Amino acid sequence: MNNNNETQKESRMNITRALIIAEPWIGKILNGEKDWEMRSTHTSISGTVGLIAKGTGTVVGIAEIIGSKGPLSHEDMLGNVHRHGIPSNMIESGEVAKWNHAWQLGKLKKLSTPVPYQHKNGAVTWVTLGEETQKQLQAELAGEDWLQEGSAPQPAEPAAPKLAYTAPVRVATGANEGEVVITQGNLNNNHIYVRNVVELFPPECFGGSNRRELASQLITLHLDKAETVKCDIDGTKKIFRDRRAIGQFLKLNNFVANDKVLIKRIADLEYELSKA
């Protein structure tokens, strides 16, 4: 049995092809922000493949394709933004309507050093990798244990929150509320730091650095002039994970740098956000 497992592992470490993915999607995959690569057709290809950043001439990651799902309905697309990473406004506009098949990714490895490959004329989606590139990718996987059999990715156990955060911009104004100063970086990246009001939130609401490490407990955010959403907190960056909803909240309330957000705890695991 062990010999069979080793044979399977060696076979799966022999990466003969790579998938070409454009920005910003390749970046989102490598950062753990999406695990569905959207395409216009189904794929029968599965197993370990290289990931190419389009236009760079290099393989920048390695992943397992564990399934292909689709065509997805409009509602399915809107309900799975956290999996495919396409903003809801792009879905609503119809500009990505043809990209309705999800190529599902499982295990992932981001390469510390991109590996060059020879791009053949006419290659648009897949590239057959040369022998030297295959050897370099196989060396990257030497000793790795992630090439075990798996199914659809499941949220990992939440990482313990790191409470050694940076010095607060402003201390909390009370046991059940606090104010946070909005920076230009917050506005540019659709997030709100909760570093200085972290005591308002229970530890189980803090997850890891990406969507595969969701917290065990979600919180409800009632966003003034925007929608009510459930999400957790990125325990590394100390931000609410649902950037789309936060961006909507900041925009609809006309926030500019140095404005303040008032965060109120109104019930267990429920919070109200408004402009201070």
Rank of each mutant, 00 (worst) to 15 (best):
V180S: 01
L221K: 00
R243E: 08
L221H: 04
L30H: 06
E6P: 04
N80C: 07
D232G: 02
P24W: 10
N188D: 14
P158T: 06
I29K: 01
A172C: 07
N5Q: 13
L78M: 12
D224Q: 15
A257I: 02
L111A: 08
V124M: 13
I266Y: 01
Y271V: 04
V181W: 02
C205G: 09
K69W: 14
G207A: 01
H42R: 15
A159E: 13
L147V: 06
E23R: 13
T183A: 03
L200R: 04
G174Y: 05
Y271M: 05
T236D: 11
K230R: 14
W25M: 06
S209H: 10
M90Q: 15
K230V: 15
S209E: 15
V60D: 08
G70K: 02
P203M: 11
E199T: 14
P87Y: 07
I52L: 08
E177D: 15
K110R: 12
F249Y: 02
T220F: 01
N100T: 09
W25K: 03
L19K: 06
G79R: 11
E131A: 09
D268N: 14
A18K: 01
E177A: 13
S93P: 07
T56W: 02
L252W: 00
S88G: 08
W146K: 06
W103P: 00
A53N: 10
L78F: 08
C205Q: 07
H119L: 13
A226Y: 02
D268F: 07
E204A: 12
P87L: 04
R17N: 10
S209N: 11
R12A: 11
E179F: 09
Q104L: 13
P203S: 12
I52A: 06
V181G: 02
K120H: 09
K54C: 04
L72D: 09
G32S: 10
L187H: 06
K238S: 11
L111R: 02
I192M: 09
L108A: 01
L51M: 14
E179M: 11
T166V: 13
G247D: 00
M38H: 05
R83V: 14
H82Q: 12
E272L: 12
I62M: 03
G32L: 08
A172Y: 03
E23N: 15
I21Q: 05
P168E: 04
S88A: 11
K107V: 10
V261I: 05
T41N: 15
T228N: 05
G67F: 02
F255G: 08
N176C: 09
Q148G: 14
G50R: 03
V180N: 03
R170P: 08
A152F: 14
P71F: 11
Q118S: 14
N100Y: 00
E37P: 04
E6N: 13
P161L: 04
R17P: 01
L137S: 00
Q138I: 01
K225R: 13
S93I: 08
A156V: 09
N210I: 07
K237Q: 13
A245G: 00
G50C: 07
V261A: 04
